[in-house]
Simulated assay, not measured.
Amino acid sequence: MYPQGRMSHHFRELRVGDYLAVKGPKGQFRYQSGEVRAFGMIAGGSGITPMFQVARAILENPKDMTNVHLIYANVTYEDILLKEELDNLAAKYPGRFKVYYVLNQPPEVWDGGVGFVSKEMIQTHCPAPAPDIRVLRCGPPPMNKAMTGHLDALGYSPDMQFQF
C-alpha cells in the first residue's frame, strides 16, 4: 500500500468477501521471436508484471536470442516485486538478461541506483537507440511521462517505444 497510490485506497477499503472489478491489460503489445535485437525495459513498482512476462517468454524460448536490459525502480528494497525471480533469470541467462534496481529510499548498503530513473541510467543500462531496439515502459503516470521525455531526448523515436 502506498499513501498516494492510485489503487491503494481502494484496497484499504476492501473487506473479506468483497469484490473489485478490474479490466486490462492496457495497450496492445505483440512480440514475435527475433523481432528486435534487444529490449530495454523500464518498470516502476507493479509495472514489473508485463516486463517479467515478456522477459521470461523471450529467455525461455531457446530459439530467441533477444537480449533484455531491465531498469526496475521502487521506493524501498522491500517494495521490489519478483526480485528472486528476476535475480534467477539474471543468473541463468547472464549474457542475455541484465537487471538494474533503482530505489528512492535505499538501505545503508546498496549497490544499485538511487533516486529516480535518469537519462544517464538509461544510457548506461539500456541498449542505445537503433532500428532493431525497442524500449518498453510501465510504471506510475509521472514516471511514464518522465521516461518518455528522457527517451525522446536520448534519440529513441516513438516507434522504438511502447508503454503498457
Rank of each mutant, 00 (worst) to 15 (best):
P3S: 07
Q4D: 07
Q4Y: 07
G5N: 10
G5R: 09
M7F: 12
M7K: 02
S8P: 03
H9W: 13
H9Q: 15
H9N: 08
E13K: 15
G17N: 11
G17P: 10
L20K: 15
A21W: 14
G24Q: 09
K26C: 06
G27N: 04
Q28L: 14
R30I: 13
Q32Y: 12
G34K: 07
G34F: 00
E35A: 13
R37E: 15
R37S: 15
F39A: 08
A43C: 11
G44V: 02
G45D: 04
I48V: 12
I48W: 08
T49R: 04
P50Y: 10
P50F: 08
M51R: 05
Q53N: 13
R56P: 03
A57W: 06
I58Q: 06
I58N: 05
N61I: 05
M65L: 13
T66R: 10
N67W: 05
V68G: 07
H69G: 03
L70P: 07
I71P: 08
I71A: 13
I71W: 07
I71Y: 07
Y72I: 09
A73S: 15
A73F: 00
N74W: 01
T76Q: 06
Y77T: 08
L81R: 03
L82V: 11
K83F: 03
K83N: 05
E84C: 02
E85N: 03
E85I: 05
L86R: 02
D87E: 15
N88K: 14
N88C: 07
L89E: 04
A91S: 13
A91Q: 13
A91D: 12
F97Q: 03
K98G: 14
V99T: 06
V102N: 09
N104S: 13
Q105R: 14
P106H: 03
W110F: 11
D111F: 12
D111W: 08
G112E: 07
G113M: 03
V114Q: 12
S118E: 03
E120Q: 15
I122P: 00
I122R: 00
I122G: 00
Q123C: 04
C126G: 03
P129Q: 06
A130V: 04
P131E: 12
R134L: 13
V135S: 01
V135G: 02
L136Y: 05
L136N: 00
R137L: 13
C138F: 02
P141A: 06
P142W: 08
N144S: 15
K145W: 01
T148Q: 08
L151E: 01
D152V: 00
A153T: 09
A153C: 05
L154T: 00
G155M: 02
Y156L: 01
P158D: 06
P158F: 03
M160Q: 15
Q161V: 14
Q161T: 11
Q163F: 09
